[in-house]
Computed example of a mutant assay.
Amino acid sequence: MPSPLPKRPLSNRPTHVIKKCQEQNRPAYIAGPMVRYSKLPFRELCRFYNVDIVYTPMILAREFVRNDVARYSDFTTNERDQPVIVQVGVSNVEDFMKFIEMIHPYVDAIGINCGCPIRDQIREGIGAALMSKPQLVANLIATAKAKYGDSICIDTKIRIHNDINETIEFVRLVEEAGTDIITIHGRTKTTRSSVPVNLDAIKTLRQHIKTVPVVANGDCFTLEDCNRIAEYTGVDGVMSARGVLANPALFTGLNKTPWSAVEMFMHLTTSYGLPYKLSQYHVVQFLENMDIPRRVIKEINECKNMIDMIDLLDKYFYLTRKSEKGFATAIDPQWKITLDSI
């Protein structure tokens, strides 16, 4: 018989982390779930820059509980991967309970996705489709809490309705059902990301949520954004997804991605493994946020494998390895050549 897993420390529970941040007179800094991109190397990179809580990508409960290939491909972790919230796309109680049974020893919270606006997900009855099924969401939470009680932590991540009163009723139901956290993306399922997030709606909902922490999601691209959102809405934490994807150091106050992020990410992705196209995408996002010339980024986008990308980075930059002095400490790009020569 394998030895039992050690219990997750209570200090890692997101509600405890949020409380600790409150004691520091600041909102909790949270890296949100992103399809494909919130994998283990990126999660650890975010923690390198003092992100308090990190999400996994959304995992489909139906596939996870039935298919061991899906389990191995969708979720990897290690002893440093904490605090972590696993986000789940689910449409029925049976799959949800099986999912929790399998995964809860490895995570610090389970996040129910009621916000993903992708049409395929909505057709499957998950993501934002759940915003029209408040009783189902409440039943998911209540059933899980009836079995596991305080041994699990549940976050309910929602969007808003066109009628804010409908959302007020939604949060009332899930709060009464026993959710531990409510995360609010201040857009409807049809609102484009180019439209500013509705902070007034988040503020209103915060005033109606009595007993659990509230996290705001949407339009957080700098630490200044984070503090402004928290102050205006009164929430306990602020989540960034697109912001940290481009700049995982944004909660440190750096408004452009530091060169250290490239070095640390290259170390993590080559140590843990990640599909090459995902690694390439992350590196390109970082470099674009540093205002690296388009010609260099184009060359990196044309690399076909990890070896070629490393060689190209080494051609243009001093890419320090972990064993070398000064690893992951530089702020500005460490050019080997002058920009005039590019």
Rank of each mutant, 00 (worst) to 15 (best):
M1F: 12
M1D: 05
T15V: 15
V17Y: 04
I18K: 10
E23N: 08
P27N: 01
I30V: 15
I30L: 09
A31D: 09
A31I: 12
A31Y: 09
P41E: 12
C46W: 00
F48N: 07
Y49E: 05
D52A: 06
I53D: 03
E63H: 14
V65H: 03
R66M: 00
V69Y: 03
V69Q: 03
A70Y: 07
S73Y: 08
T76H: 07
E79K: 15
D81R: 11
V84R: 01
V84A: 01
V90P: 05
V90A: 08
N92W: 03
E101R: 08
M102T: 08
I103A: 09
Y106R: 13
G111N: 15
D120I: 01
I122W: 06
G127A: 08
A129W: 07
A142K: 15
A142D: 07
K145P: 11
A146M: 13
I152K: 05
H161K: 13
E169S: 14
V171S: 11
E175P: 15
H185Q: 12
H185T: 12
R187Y: 13
S193Y: 10
S193N: 14
L199E: 05
T204I: 15
L205K: 12
Q207W: 03
I209Y: 00
P213T: 05
C226A: 14
N227L: 11
T233L: 09
T233M: 07
D236A: 04
R242D: 06
G253W: 12
T257E: 03
W259E: 01
S260F: 04
V262R: 07
M264V: 01
T269Y: 01
S271K: 11
Y272A: 00
K277N: 06
L278Y: 13
V284R: 00
L287K: 01
E288D: 05
N289T: 04
R294F: 08
I297A: 09
I300Y: 00
C303D: 01
D308E: 15
L313P: 08
R321I: 00
G326A: 10
A328P: 07
P333G: 01
W335Q: 07
